[in-house]
């Protein structure tokens, strides 16, 4: 039982990170219907930049945290302005997705150039002994990760349901032409979605690095895991992709624990293929809903 709980907790931890990445996918998908396959690089960016501010420049934790998030957002903004904006109106989604792959290679190269190939780590948000819960060990950082995921869920709920700007983004996701008729500047919504997505992905990186370390080439695998989570939960719905993230994390951790740790990544790809073949709209929604209900 303790063993199961231990696997379960570590599954929740990775799951929370996958959920954040899946969410970053979703935000951009909803406003542009393209997949940003550079998402994993943004996670790595968050971890590495945080290390730079915290360990190299010796800035306080809070400052480094906020600075790293802003850098994530700014790189997201730069990506939209430089690579997506100029071709958004004319290019088809496939070309745009290829552009994001190109951007991910570029970003990975820059990160390698700046940080080298070594893994980086830094202390967790709060020091202290791990917490023992029913015989299973839970690191303090994991609690922080949960707190942040809950905060983001609340933020998303309030943002999309209580603010005009969030509603406008929803409108843009549902029907871009009608959104324009409401006087909504849809290109602005695309820009904001890239910024938000950059921030959420970097947040995932900042939070996970104290547990797993980060090096420049971790991005592609994270992209695949985040994408699998998004497909599993149903691309388009924020709550769905979050649930998908946690589900994938737990399944992975159980597989690694009970069967073989080498099967961890195989499982994600297997799930991805199965879902795409048999239920591309995700576990929690029908194909009809996927078309209609976004966010």
């Amino acid at each position: 039982m303790e063993l199961f709980l231990q696997y379960f907790f570590s599954g929740l931890t990775v799951g929370a990170i996958y959920a954040l990445i899946a969410l970053s996918f979703n935000i951009i998908y909803n406003t542009t219907s393209i997949l940003n396959l550079a998402q994993g690089e943004f996670v790595v960016l968050g971890g590495l930049v945080m290390w730079f501010f915290l360990e190299k420049l010796k800035l306080p934790y809070g400052t480094s945290f906020l600075l790293s998030l802003s850098i994530g957002g700014l790189v997201g903004l730069a990506m939209e302005r430089l690579t997506i904006r100029p071709v958004l109106k004319t290019a088809d989604p496939l070309l745009l997705i290829l552009i994001t792959i190109a951007f991910s290679i570029l970003l990975r190269g820059v990160l390698m150039f700046l940080f080298g190939k070594e893994p980086y780590g830094y202390p967790p948000l709060s020091e202290g002994e791990p917490i023992v819960l029913w015989g299973a060990v839970l690191q303090r950082q994991v609690i922080w990760i949960f707190i942040f995921v809950i905060l983001i869920m609340i933020f998303l709920y309030v943002f999309f349901n209580q603010t005009m700007f969030g509603r406008a983004m929803k409108a843009c996701a549902i029907d871009r032409v009608s959104a324009k008729l409401m006087g909504i500047k849809t290109t602005q919504m695309v820009m904001v979605s890239f910024i938000l997505s950059g921030i959420f992905a970097s947040l995932a990186g900042i939070l996970i690095t104290p547990i797993t370390f980060v090096e420049y080439d971790k991005g592609p695998l994270l992209t695949i895991k985040g994408f699998t989570s998004a497909i599993l939960g149903g691309l388009g719905s924020n709550w769905g992709v979050m649930a998908g993230g946690f589900l994938l994390g737990i399944l992975e951790s159980l597989t690694a624990g009970y069967i073989h740790s080498g099967l961890k990544d195989v499982l994600a790809l297997l799930i991805l293929l199965t879902m795409l073949l048999f239920k591309p709209a995700g576990l929690f929604q029908t194909a009809e809903q996927a078309r209609l209900r976004k966010l």
């Binding site: 509603r167 929803k170 409108a171 549902i174 009608s178 008729l181 209609l292 209900r293 976004k294």
Partner: peptide
């Protein structure tokens, strides 16, 4: 617009 253009999921 023609076809109303309302946001059906909202």
């Amino acid at each position: 617009p023609e076809g109303k253009g309302i946001f059906k999921p909202l």
